[in-house]
Simulated scan of single mutants.
Amino acid sequence: MEHLIHSRVKNIEISGIRKFFNMVADRPNLVSLTIGQPDFPTPEHVKEAGKAAIDNNFTTYTHNAGLAEVRQAACQFVREKYGLDYDEQEVIVTIGASQAIDIAFRTILEEGVEVILPGPVYPGYEPIIRMCGATPVYVDTRHNGFRLSAALIEPYITERTRCIVLPYPSNPTGVTLSEQELLELVRLLKDKPIWILSDEIYSELVYADRHRSIAAWLRNQTIVINGLSKSHSMTGWRIGFLFAPEFLTKHMLKVHQYSVSCASSVSQKAALAALTDGKNDADNMRKQYKARMEYAYERLVSMGLGIEKPTGAFYLFPSIHSFGLSSFDFALDLVDKAGVAVVPGSAFSSYGEGYVRLSYAYSFETLKEGLDRMEKYIQQKR
């Protein structure tokens, strides 16, 4: 019966991040710096709101788009934080940012169109693009500090271009785009029949300045993806947000309705607490992530690894070109000989080959132990 499975589904693979993590997870005495899972607990007041929802039997369906008060709070949150102007008809509460990406692509993509992405990039976009019958078109950003610029994009725009993905702050590189870089993109894309999918799930984890969204300038062309997983350490609560003009959200809501009906009612009550009383919950986490980043970055530089200094998220993406191994072989050898797990750069498209990704969403003690082991390994390799 396997021959009856959709060929596009058979041809996609499990995320390289998870594949490598699952492969080495059972190794004894392993220090893992692989998964982008905040090591902070969900804030207490958010957990209490979820518990209260259960105790009050708030365990039913909600409006397909989410509770009105949650949508209003989400709009207020991005208005206050990033200067974005949406109303409750222009936001859908989703089951994490991943589902928001899925329903966005399934609404705007069709057979034969193209989607421009930076390479390297988070691996969650390409499979959905391909399942929609569209073609991912990668732009090499390695010689531009991993930033997708107007100059890099322009040669790839064709009549088939339907969407451009801006995933900043970036997983796996941790880089962000400056206002000047965004304005150059605005000049290039304004009034073109091209959607922009702006994945801003790490927007609260920007170190130098506040996060800026291209939706502030190209509102009618932009789909903003956000959520609470990274900002409020709520990965398991599965709450994301999809912002777009109403003429688009009314169609995306149909896809959302038929795939999941609505996000969890209990999680939505927790989300309301996060967006209101907890709107600044990320501040302390961000300070700690920045301190960890500075420490880990300096350690990697001292090891002689080429690396772009992150300005957001919680990842480092050092080059391992000088070792003459593929990123997968390097990562596997690092596990075998040093007991440290990182993610092969090849998990982030072919443009990630020659790099590895480290997450610093771990305690200082874990980071120190992992980097100590990695340093000894590198010294032995040289």
Rank of each mutant, 00 (worst) to 15 (best):
L242R: 02
H3W: 13
Q37W: 08
S178G: 05
V266T: 11
K381R: 14
L152N: 04
V121E: 06
L272Q: 07
I54Q: 07
S170P: 08
A291L: 10
S178H: 02
N226H: 15
W217G: 00
Y362T: 00
D55E: 13
D329S: 10
V342D: 00
S233P: 10
D85R: 08
P155L: 01
D102T: 13
A150G: 09
L358P: 08
V115Q: 03
H3I: 13
E114R: 06
C262A: 14
R382Y: 10
V93A: 06
Y82P: 01
G124C: 09
A74V: 08
R299T: 10
S213F: 02
G240A: 11
L358T: 05
I103T: 14
R210D: 09
Y355T: 04
R292C: 13
R160V: 00
Y360T: 09
S261Y: 13
R160C: 07
F40M: 11
V335S: 01
L305A: 10
Q180Y: 04
G174Y: 00
G133I: 08
L367Q: 01
I17L: 12
Y377F: 14
T59W: 00
E375T: 13
Q268N: 12
V113D: 12
I116H: 04
F314W: 09
K254T: 12
A282I: 03
G119H: 00
G174M: 07
K250N: 10
L248R: 13
D333T: 12
T176M: 08
A263S: 15
D372L: 05
G16C: 11
L300H: 07
L253F: 06
D85N: 14
A53S: 15
A49V: 07
K51C: 13
P41L: 10
A270Q: 06
A215G: 05
D55F: 02
I164N: 00
G240W: 01
A216M: 11
T60C: 08
R212I: 10
A134N: 12
A313I: 02
I14Q: 14
V93N: 04
I223Y: 01
K309Q: 10
E114Y: 05
A361K: 02
P310W: 00
H251G: 04
I92L: 15
G16H: 01
N284G: 13
I239K: 06
G354P: 02
K376M: 13
L182H: 01
Y86N: 06
W195Q: 08
V93R: 02
A270F: 00
I225R: 03
Y202L: 15
Y258E: 14
R373H: 03
S264W: 04
S203G: 10
Y61G: 12
A274W: 01
Y295F: 15
T366I: 07
Y315K: 11
E246C: 08
I35Q: 12
T135S: 15
L275R: 03
V206F: 01
E80R: 14
H251I: 05
S359T: 15
T173C: 11
A134H: 09
Q379C: 10
A104F: 06
